[in-house]
Design a protein around this nucleic acid. Structure first.
Lengths: 154, 154
DNA sequence: TATTGTTATACTCTATAACTATA
DNA sequence: TATAGTTATAGAGTATAACAATA
């Protein structure tokens, strides 16, 4: 499996329209399949797609302001009230006052939230999903390429 | 067009959990960024995300039954009525009777629909989006990898 | 004045179930 | 009976605007 880790002297890059077109199609296709897979796994844990995403953004032991979660989810802050309410109803997360700024409420996963988050993510990777299309070698090459792209730009 | 039709089967390989984890994170991240980009481009054409997707699935000069569109969009057929209504309201698509089965209605893009579809997709690729993270060489390697994966399995 | 979280509201997306007209 | 499209309905997702408490 050649990776073609090119020694491209990236000066004036010719952006091939056809290549971009094909690449966009392929990535959007894979993205759509992963979305289907993720939503299916989420449903097994009685999680809606948005809840699953929020759960993934909340890292165990790291409280964050609700504002920060809105940023990570790329959505308006007004959406979080109901979303976080449901997480609290399930005992997966807790709102806590921020001692340094009384306007802020921070969010933190409970033990149950940590279990839920871990269980969901493990299921996502264990169940045969779109990623099982790739051999380990392909997966490695893919990871390296994506890492190169996202660390360069972003 | 080298296809790299690999002779190794994904199923027989040892699946490294950490690699899958990292790969999933990267792909979901890229997918999320592309979704943001696509929705932004769609908005410029007064298209909702769902309308943009539907438009993309309708190929110029190729009428398809509404049922088929539902399949391609991975959604229930009941959603299509309103969606297609809006496409017709905009003059982008037309419902036509299927002569061989009077239950079926086929969908086809109008000239305006073809223009809209082309304009949207061109904008998606022209405007600097997540794909501009990659150099042409990286893009080519990425395409080959994705092609290998999606043609092998799926 | 500006910001955080909340509420109220509206529109879109999506699924389920029941209906119709065909097959 | 089964299928294609429709309708009605409900819940989820998301944005905008206005509000209270705090900075």
């Amino acid at each position: 499996m050649t990776l073609t880790s090119t020694d491209d002297h990236a000066t004036a890059e010719p952006p091939d329209p056809d290549l971009l077109d094909e690449l966009a199609q392929l990535i959007l296709g894979l993205a759509a399949r992963m979305q289907v897979h993720r939503n299916a796994c989420a449903a097994e844990f009685d999680l809606t797609p948005a809840l699953a995403k929020a759960l993934r953004e909340l890292e165990p032991g790291k409280p964050i302001p609700m504002r920060e979660l809105a940023l990570r989810l790329n959505c308006d802050a007004s959406n979080l009230t109901g979303l976080v309410d449901r997480l609290e109803d399930r005992g997966a997360a807790e709102r806590r006052p921020d001692l340094s700024d009384r306007r802020v409420k921070t969010l933190v996963l409970t033990e149950e939230g940590v279990r839920l988050r871990h269980g969901f993510w493990k299921r996502l990777l264990t169940e045969a999903g779109p990623l099982s299309e790739f051999t380990p070698d392909q997966a490695r090459a893919l990871r390296d390429l994506l890492l190169a792209g996202t660390t360069t730009a972003r």
